[in-house]
Computed example of a mutant assay.
Amino acid sequence: MILNVHERTLPSAAGALIDTLSGSDDRLWPHDRWPAQRFDRPLGVGAVGGHGPVRYDVRDYEPGRRVRFGFRGPAGFHGYHEYEALAAPDGGCLLRHSLVLEPRGRARLTWPLIYRPLHDALIEDSLATAARNLGVAGDRPQWSVWVRLLRFLAGRRA
């Protein structure tokens, strides 16, 4: 079982950014650098979609607090990922993205070699996007050479 967690302490308004996911005013997803997150309807339980080759559906949604997505693809991805807005000790908000995955079959290789580095870079970009949209200064995360190579190769195939 894989548990992959990324988090950042932000101002208390960070939870509201979850509600903008995949909307016309999305202030959480780094759509300027990554494939846009799209669903067949507005964000809510039962919405189906994803980004790039990663497919999922909304399993649980608590506006301003949490959204959980269950994987539908790629093959061998069994689990979920979610954004949560938790109270931080300083009165702010701990914005957390968690991925819980049991890779099966080919995914036992594709997760660590391809998807994990891309996922980690995307989520760090997402947290930086959230910070920027809340007026928190900071640089964009730098991608590793491996992430840049994977993105280059993916772009050539498309």
Rank of each mutant, 00 (worst) to 15 (best):
W29T: 15
P30Q: 11
P30I: 07
P30F: 14
H31M: 07
H31A: 15
H31P: 06
D32A: 13
D32L: 12
D32Y: 04
W34A: 01
W34C: 02
P35Y: 15
P35D: 14
A36R: 15
R38F: 05
R38V: 15
R38L: 11
R38Y: 09
F39W: 09
D40S: 10
D40G: 08
D40T: 14
D40C: 13
R41A: 12
R41C: 05
R41L: 01
R41M: 05
R41K: 13
P42I: 06
P42A: 08
P42K: 08
L43D: 02
G44K: 03
V45Y: 02
V45F: 02
G46T: 01
G46Y: 00
A47V: 01
A47Q: 00
V48M: 04
G49R: 11
G49K: 04
G50K: 03
G50E: 07
H51Q: 09
H51K: 08
H51W: 10
H51I: 07
G52W: 06
G52D: 14
P53Q: 10
P53F: 13
P53C: 05
V54R: 13
V54C: 05
Y56R: 11
Y56L: 03
Y56S: 14
Y56D: 13
D57H: 15
D57F: 15
V58I: 08
V58C: 02
R59D: 05
D60W: 03
E62H: 09
E62M: 05
E62S: 07
E62T: 10
P63I: 01
P63C: 05
G64L: 05
R65Y: 00
R65G: 10
R66M: 07
V67Y: 09
V67K: 09
V67F: 08
R68H: 05
F69S: 12
F69A: 10
F71M: 06
F71P: 02
F71T: 03
R72I: 00
R72P: 02
R72E: 11
G73F: 10
G73K: 09
P74E: 10
P74N: 13
P74L: 01
A75H: 06
G76T: 10
G76S: 08
G76E: 08
F77A: 07
F77E: 04
F77P: 07
F77I: 02
H78F: 12
H78D: 15
H78T: 11
G79E: 13
